[in-house]
């Protein structure tokens, strides 16, 4: 097996614009909606408890965890 050298860390710091892009990609991946649409629904309290699996798919909690990228 090839021995990889990952001891040095390459960290990327996203700009706010890139952060919004990340958020938008994940909203589309998990919930088939745009990031802005998610934020609008979030602000309106439409999701309620984000981890209530009787009401929300798993992606809602994952998007909630990414809010620091856009807020």
């Amino acid at each position: 097996m090839e021995q990889t050298a990952h001891t040095s860390v390459d960290t990327r710091e996203l700009s706010r614009e890139e952060g919004r892009g990340l958020f938008d990609r994940q909203a589309r991946r998990y919930l088939d909606m745009s990031g802005d649409e998610f934020l609008s629904k979030w602000d309106d309290g439409e999701f309620g408890d984000p981890d209530d699996r009787t009401k929300n798919p798993p992606g809602v909690m994952l998007l909630a965890m990414l809010l620091p990228f856009v807020r």
Binding site: T4, R12, L14
Partner: peptide
């Protein structure tokens, strides 16, 4: 965390943060 991730991926060595 980065070192742990390297156990399963050779590519996932970029971690994202908001701005600086």
């Amino acid at each position: 965390l980065q070192k742990a991730i390297s156990c399963v991926s050779k590519e996932a060595h970029v971690w994202a943060l908001l701005g600086t």
